[in-house]
Nucleic acid binder design. Structure first.
Lengths: 185, 185, 185, 185
DNA sequence: GATGAATGAGCATTCATTCAT
DNA sequence: AATGAATGAATGCTCATTCAT
């Protein structure tokens, strides 16, 4: 008992184990992983998963929210950078390099799910939009696209670059096509 | 038995009907369409589908290959066009506009399946590669990418642009990013 | 009523086995019997049940529709009887005696389910209403109640008289209270 | 165990809170209310419920018995009333109007459970039986029924009149059928 | 060859009950 | 004594695949 946390020690441990299993499973296979499989990997019963997360979608959300928040923080740091174009592409590079290029995040952004409207995702999208608009106003990014278009293009590239056999060079080249396509000509 | 018609013709007609139904269903809803639904649309029993295709995946591939052959024909026509860059982007426009922008093809290309190594696919890839190389040699398309990179980028864009709520303008803008990203700067 | 095209022999046999198992189970325990249990008793897989009946509620409906139709036939016969009061109570006696005093039928009538609106049930309710109205107009049945009130009172009595330990005399006395309560004083 | 020893003050308080929550919940929704929900409403953990009541059914019975005792008190008051028929129907009116017309009591009386044999229930049945017998002897209530018949008829009416959509007028009319059926003709 | 009936593992989710804290 | 976390068997329903007709 080192802390006076509201969650009991064993509960927190299980919650973390479930989240870890969910993160790994969702990152590798997307939201289609059976919840029972996640429970099994976490070494708990399915009921325990539901004790911590009311629906499978809520678990999915929780599994990626950390990643999203870290990305949002980074986007906010860059929002006041001197060079908006450099900041915009810096964020994209970060996103790709950071390891966030997972099936889970790809499936989360731009989907029709309620997830998109959740506060953390909304926060991330807002900060990305800021970066996009600044870069567009400075003339470095094509002005004919909006946030949705950007997310769609990125999501597609995330999806296709998340296969086990891909090399770093291939991933880099695939993103290069999209990134260059975002610049003004 | 009582007719003079050879059974072979019956079988082939059924095979074609199954393929047609599969093409339509997969194009509209992706690989998740129940096989029973395809059988129903084809006017045959599910057992008949299995007579011609050992698994659902095999049917999916067969449905794709058919599409691929038509694309290959078009690519071959363009392979000798006067303007290689115009031919290359003309093929892509065709692919996108013609109706090949379907969930099925998007789900098939660039996957890990044996599909890619099949003879028809090899044929299509060869002819697309020809178009790509000619366009690259003529200086209109970026030289740092290979066929795989091109397919990956297209596949991602196909995937994200095949949702029911998307508008034509959104689809056009999303592909514009990728197409412009393919050009030399 | 054409049921559609004739089922294959094995299919019809299984359909009957499922229906028989469903009738028995629903009659004894009401609609809460697990569908898998009915499948097990019928010696088939749950998928087979769903092949014949799209939902559990549809199976429930099918299981009691025979009973309902026989009751409706009887009610229609009595609709033109010389003595409306005798006809009305004759129908109720028949209902009770016939063996229709089962949990299933009790749960079916007067519930909020879509079942009530189904054609066979609607037919039965219509013919019962006819008997009720005629008996009321002839002065033998209390005029202050409508079909719903009648069904409610009957349903309650059905429910409480469907326990294994009840004797015929007890069942008769319980219904006597309700039946006498239906008469004008 | 030490049956006679009083519970600790906090234990008894918890027991009462659980009972109060159970009474309210069972009355509103019947025995299907999740035990966790009752614990939550009582402000205790589910484990605490199990400390006081070995099973959910035992809790249900305990909640009922409490109600029953209050009814018994009222029945005893009426046992010496001047007009036995008025007393009998006065008790029934009380039962119906007082709020005892709840799912819980309806589900409990006349069931096969050990509940009926418990001392408090025996007490209530005795006092109701007294009211019934006195009313029968005075000639106002039909002599051909016994206590069980009365309880069964009431239980059925309770069950069918405890649905959310029912109106007061409908409930009144349904009970009127049974009450009038109890009178001598 | 064709049919379509049957299979049964699998899915997300609930909840009475147990037990470690 | 109390807590509340964990359990896991169930539930209604789907669908790729097999197999009797």
């Amino acid at each position: 008992m080192t802390e006076g946390r509201p969650l009991r020690a064993d509960a927190r441990r299980n919650r973390e184990r479930v989240l870890a299993a969910a993160r790994e499973a969702f990152a590798a296979e997307g939201i289609s992983v059976p919840l029972d499989e996640i429970a099994r990997r976490a070494g708990v019963g399915p009921g325990t998963v539901y004790r911590h997360f009311p629906t499978k979608e809520a678990l999915f959300h929780a599994a990626i929210v950390d990643n999203i928040e870290r990305l949002t923080d980074y986007a906010r740091e860059l929002a006041t950078a001197a060079d908006p174009v450099h900041a915009f592409f810096g964020f994209l590079d970060h996103w790709v390099a950071e390891g966030a290029v997972k099936r889970d995040l790809a499936e989360a952004i731009g989907s029709d799910h309620a997830l998109e409207l959740s506060s953390p995702v909304k926060g991330m999208l807002d900060s990305i939009e800021t970066l996009l608009h600044r870069a567009q106003r400075s003339g470095g990014v094509r002005p004919d696209i909006d946030l949705d278009d950007l997310l769609r293009a990125l999501k597609g590239t995330f999806l296709v670059t998340h296969i086990p056999t891909i090399t770093d060079a291939q991933r880099r080249r695939t993103f290069a096509i999209v990134f260059d396509g975002l610049r003004v000509r």
